[in-house]
């Protein structure tokens, strides 16, 4: 075990995979000389040279498309997007191409690529730098969607992503890059589609992923002081979605709150809540509650922004509602 930041955990996965497999290449804006906007690729240009660490023009559509071509020919490109918001410029390549090449080739063509970068809100970055795109990408068959919360998950899931033979949407979070945690030393990988119980509890199940796991844990702490024991589930992956872990928890707690940073309509929480209804309706003592961002493009002014993102207090209130204590 070593204590690493989320950033260094990602970086160490890149280094180990690049050392172990010459087919792994990195592509993105300002990842070489600049070492990445969030320093995930620090020093990698020096280590691997410009052939494998490619500083691109500002052309998301172009370099994501080129990465697909490289992947089809057997390279394993890891594309960095400065923020997931800019992946929208490459949407056609991701959705119409990366996600469909295997299917349209009748299973013959592999597209082993990872697209990674920060997703979700930061502080005062406004709407075009703050969107949470997990549900958007998880909607499309053919894409894995991964959202690690801890440094160990960042490393273990990135390794699995790089070794995957299908495209992976790898969602990091700007607020987490500096966070430290224990990371196993060995060649360790985490499987996709396996959630973790981040805190055990008997009264209510709180489902979250990425940064919202920590909001849920803080809320659980506050609730514990009032004698309410919340179980917090860290999803790690949205596609595939580990419904079994949620259902098992809900069948003990009989109540559920789902937390997401995204807008409420058509978000990940809607899908998760519906899976609970489908598989554990009989177990529920109360309707599933959702905690989400406000239904508005993220404003820049701090006075407005605080109204638009979900807070611990919202989770606490939602939990109490499921317990009839509001």
């Amino acid at each position: 075990m070593a204590e690493l930041t989320y950033r260094d955990a990602l970086r160490s996965a890149l280094i180990e995979e690049m050392d172990h497999d010459r087919r792994v290449v990195l592509i993105g804006e300002d990842i070489g000389v600049y070492q990445g906007t969030f320093r995930v690729t620090a020093d990698l240009l020096k280590r691997y040279g410009p052939g494998r660490v490619i500083d691109t023009p500002i052309s998301e559509l172009g370099f994501v498309g080129a990465a697909i071509g490289m992947a089809m020919l057997g390279l394993r490109p890891v594309v960095e997007v400065m923020t997931w918001n800019f992946s929208l410029l490459a949407m056609d390549q991701i959705v119409n191409n990366a996600a469909k090449l295997r299917y349209f080739s009748g299973g013959q063509v592999n597209v082993p690529m990872v697209i990674r970068g920060p997703n979700g809100a930061g502080v005062q970055l406004s709407a075009q730098h703050s969107q949470s795109l997990e549900a958007t990408y998880a909607h499309f068959p053919g894409l894995y969607v991964v959202a690690p919360a801890t440094p160990a998950e960042a490393k273990g899931l990135l390794r699995t992503a790089i070794r995957s033979d299908d495209p992976v949407i790898f969602l990091e979070n700007a607020a987490l890059y500096g966070m430290k945690g224990e990371v196993p030393d060995s060649d360790f990988a985490l499987p996709f589609g396996k959630a973790a119980v981040a805190r055990s509890g008997r009264d209510v199940t709180v489902v979250a992923y990425s940064r919202m796991v920590f909001a849920a844990l803080t809320a659980a702490e506050q609730l514990a002081a009032e004698g309410i024991e919340a179980e917090v589930i860290n999803m790690r992956c949205l596609r595939p979605l580990d419904a079994a872990t949620i259902v098992e928890s809900v069948s003990r707690t009989h109540r559920a709150v789902v937390v997401q940073e995204q807008w409420k309509p058509f978000g990940a929480a809607a899908e998760i809540a519906m899976r609970i209804y489908e598989d554990a309706f009989d177990q529920l003592d109360a309707p599933v509650e959702r905690v989400t961002g406000a239904d508005v493009p993220m404003p820049y002014a701090r006075t407005l922004e605080v109204r638009a993102v979900p807070h611990e207090a919202d989770i606490v209130a939602a939990v109490k509602k499921t317990l009839g204590k509001d």
Binding site: A294, D295, A301, R307
Partner: peptide
């Protein structure tokens, strides 16, 4: 500053 209740 913008009024918080104008956020949406």
């Amino acid at each position: 500053l913008p009024q918080p209740d104008t956020a949406t």
